[in-house]
Design a binder for these strands. Structure first.
Lengths: 341, 341
DNA sequence: ATATGGTGCGCAAACGTTTGAGTGTTTTTT
DNA sequence: AAAAAACACTCAAACGTTTGCGCACCATAT
């Protein structure tokens, strides 16, 4: 029994009235009499009428849907963020269209197209770590599809974004290590292409100069965030003239790779070599050797804020306020959290 | 400059031909001449024409979208599953509409309605653990919206599902430990209320009897899956007459709690006390002391299979094959995976 | 009796696309 | 040379909804 859903047209026919009357009756339009309104609602209820959203989408030119593009759903940070996005969107009666780029620039571009074709009302994006061209986002502006970036934001001028300021957190992290007596502090940083990489470096330098210590560039090494890359980076640090007694790593994953490797090298974690990291992943609750502290980046909060902003933009757009001069640039201050061992 | 997207109509007007010709030209319909076809495509390209999906949705009565309802996005199992679902759907050019129930039956019902209104072509569902009524799923059948359940499947008769059988994996796990010479094998099981707890216990007993060993009930203890509960459970096991030399834990989290605690007790992990667990969480890649083996529940595979089935159902539906007698009931055998240390 | 105004509803266009059924030309077949 | 077939394209309906405008009707005020 695959009874096709009831339409407004059928209701109109049964009641012997016009479709427009039915439509208005269902929307409590004042120009419809009480009796007909009741009749319509009663019948609609009996026939289990449900408005066909696709028709409404077409009619209104909007879908009440927001697209989300992020690198990797199974990463703790993003799964937490998407959870927040869905929660927030749901409350405002929006639906979430989801896609992951797997850090593939090409796929990211295709996804933007796809989202555009699906006529999402707006887009939430965390850009892939390899993405180097950003034309595909520019093109969205032409179509008046608002985009809010979160966490991994592109180096573009006029964009809305919410991100975590890594600089403050990094300053805190380095200061924390300095306070604990370390002087040779290494850093395993991310790829040069990422904004976050620069921020961490800046924070590192600022923390050093603030404490009137000279900055040794050889103590900062890049890595591609893979396990092998991390090993290589650690090797490089350990081989440098001023062997570091503490290391700030790009994120918890890198930290754990490094710790695992360091243990293989018979290094006593958090005694001979102390770690501080970013992200504050839940998994460190389950572990023995973990970074002494982590810079929390508040993924849930970021997702929430970004969604709030996007929905706000959509509301303003609807009301035709065309002062497109203001850009939301929300910075959530990262915060160093000391891990209880 | 918010130029509205180009439509087929505009192209037709500029070229002085009809919209149907443009539509057919873009679809390489044989009845359109080569020259017009070229002209159309060229102009469409120049104007950056993108078909309006919402119009196509309405026209074709299908959205090329599948809805996914699951309890909690931020849980590792589900974030891995949703990752698989998105990947698989993307390959077949489907899009994913996402929502989480937070194990709330009421919200789950609302989400089903919402998905229906959005005219998703099909639905993928992992039911909340508190859901006790399943009427909201029944109603989907009337509208001919196929549903495939995965992992957490409801007690309904005629449904498609893919799930994981825990008993086999447990038998393997216990047999694995027996083969390695253990005779006193403990089990830290879950709460008695959970179905999965019973499955594990059954598997344990079957493995023992299969190997003609007597089953000692005192070697199976319950715990509430928290860190403290795990500690208590481990204490209980270690205090029993036949002190176990190996332990099967309800899941990886419990295993890691237990391992962490055992280390505090100066027990040599995987030498004095060997662990086997369930889930095979990715986080063990980052860790030093991990269970020797884990019963893998294949979240990615489950998501993938479920999506494959759903897309298959959709394809068959389109081709009008109305033999709705067959139901997919895929059991993925859980499998013991030895962890490389 | 005529204007005024409110009430309750219908008409038809619009959103952008697909597609079955024509229609007029040209080419091929017999 | 006439009939048949192939070609290239157009018309218009359909998908389900919303909404500006128009129209009839009745009640009240002039």
């Amino acid at each position: 029994m695959q009874s096709k859903p009831t339409t407004i047209k059928e209701i109109a026919q049964i009641l012997g009235i016009s479709v427009s009357t039915v439509s208005r009756a269902l929307h409590d339009h004042p120009s419809i009499g009480l009796t007909t309104r009741m009749k319509v609602k009663k019948l609609a209820d009996e026939l289990n009428y449900e408005p066909n959203q696709t028709a409404i989408f077409l009619q209104q030119g909007k879908t009440h849907t927001i697209g989300v593009i992020l690198p990797e759903l199974s990463e703790a940070f993003f799964s937490s963020a998407i959870s927040a996005i869905e929660d927030t969107a749901y409350k405002k009666n929006y639906t979430v269209l989801l896609a992951q780029s797997h850090d593939d620039e090409q796929k990211e571009k295709q996804l933007v197209e796809k989202m555009k074709n699906h006529r999402v009302d707006g887009l939430l994006v965390s850009v892939g770590k390899n993405t180097s061209s950003f034309q595909h986002f520019e093109s969205l502006k032409k179509y008046d599809i608002p985009v809010v970036f979160f966490d991994r934001i592109p180096p573009m001028q006029n964009i809305h974004y919410v991100a975590c300021n890594m600089e403050i957190g990094t300053i805190e992290a380095v200061s924390y290590l300095l306070k604990r007596g370390h002087r040779a502090i290494g850093m395993i940083n991310g790829p040069q292409t990422m904004v976050a990489t620069g921020e961490r470096k800046e924070g590192y330098i600022k923390a050093m100069t603030k404490n009137r210590l000279k900055f040794d560039p050889s103590l900062i090494v890049s890595c591609d965030l893979t396990e092998d890359g991390t090993k290589a980076a650690l090797d490089e640090l350990l081989a440098s003239k001023r062997k570091p007694t503490a290391i700030v790593t790009f994120n918890d994953y890198v930290a754990l790779f490094a710790i695992k490797y360091a243990q293989k090298l018979k290094i006593n974690i958090n005694k001979d070599l102390e770690f501080v990291s970013y992200a504050n992943l839940p998994l460190i609750n389950y572990m023995e050797n973990i970074p002494a502290a982590s810079v929390e980046q508040f993924p849930y909060l970021q997702g929430q804020k970004a969604t709030d902003i996007l929905l706000d933009l959509l509301r303003n757009k609807q009301q035709g306020s065309n002062e497109q001069s203001a850009y939301y640039k929300i910075i959530i201050e990262s915060q160093l959290i000391e891990n209880k061992q």
